[in-house]
């Protein structure tokens, strides 16, 4: 009885969570310029517009990809030494550094966005895409920081001792033991940052100063004019990317453990 009730509850939750997404995705099939549900004159023409023919969207998409890839890479590169120092030394100083790096993610993004807007206007980076990349890298630094730290905690210290007794210096141990063993966690952190950067627009709105736009920013900017089915195509593309990325993380990494599940239980 309780079990049936539980399954019903979970199914209901899944339906509610999926509902708006399904509706947006199906709206992408609309033939006209207006969003209808159920879609009218179903067609795939909007996909062509979004990915190939409409310069507004193709440019936004390429910006999105550049910012997401660039910022995720940068975030991982910054997170590694911070996480490594924290794991290696466990010092107060490195803990503070890690805490500092997590601040932007923990506070309302609109405030960080406003601050970055001022910041880049002083440095002259406002409206340039590299300022956008750096901003997102800092905003999402917390994600690879957490996943890499989790990965490092999983490294057996006896492995490091074993490597040392076989002649490995710290550098060699890092390259041959630590890096390969934490690779799934590094990749997970990269993907988390990538996907969230892909979808973020508030911070990007303040940093871009309308000089360039990403896909979500483009949608945000044209919000006042109403939705078009082409925007729904973007939603389809984004949710697909998310599902592929997180499935990959689940397939090659331990997703439950990354999310903080107890390792001992299955």
């Amino acid at each position: 009885m309780g079990r049936v009730f539980g399954h019903l509850f979970m199914a209901l939750a899944a339906i509610v969570v999926a509902l708006p997404i399904v509706i947006v995705c199906s709206a992408a099939l609309n033939g006209g310029r207006t969003m209808f549900f159920p879609p009218q004159d179903p067609t795939l023409a909007r996909f062509g517009e979004f990915f190939f023919s409409e310069p507004v969207w193709t440019r936004a998409l390429s910006n999105s990809v550049i910012v997401a890839l660039g910022s995720a890479t940068l975030a991982v590169l910054m997170a590694w030494p911070i996480a490594y120092a924290l794991w290696k030394t466990g010092s107060r100083q490195s803990a503070m550094l890690a805490g500092l790096g997590s601040i932007p993610f923990a506070l309302p993004p609109i405030v960080f966005g406003v601050g970055l807007g001022f910041f880049w206007s002083f440095l002259g980076g406002l409206g340039s895409i590299w300022a956008g990349i750096i901003s997102h890298a800092v905003l999402f630094l917390a994600l690879p920081l957490v996943t890499i730290s989790i990965g490092l905690q999983a490294v057996d210290r006896a492995h490091l001792d074993a490597a040392a007794t076989m002649g490995a210096t710290e550098g060699v141990t890092f390259r041959t033991i630590i890096l390969p063993q934490t690779l799934p966690y590094t990749i997970s952190g990269f993907f988390f940052a990538l996907v969230l950067s892909f979808n973020e627009f508030i911070v990007m709105f303040f940093v871009s100063a309308s000089a360039f736009s990403t896909v979500t920013l483009q949608i945000f900017n044209s919000l006042r004019n109403g939705y078009t089915p082409t925007m729904a195509v973007a939603a389809v593309a984004f949710i697909t990317v998310s599902i592929i990325v997180f499935s990959a993380v689940a397939r090659w990494g331990d997703l439950p453990r990354l999310m903080g599940a107890d390792q001992s239980r299955n």
Binding site: V17, P20, I23, N199, T216, I239, V249
Partner: peptide, 17 residues
């Protein structure tokens, strides 16, 4: 996977839905 995909989906899409 399902939850993370919806979690990361941009606010603009969710509001659209």
């Amino acid at each position: 996977v399902f939850l993370l995909a919806t979690l990361s989906l941009s606010e603009v899409f969710i509001v659209m839905g």
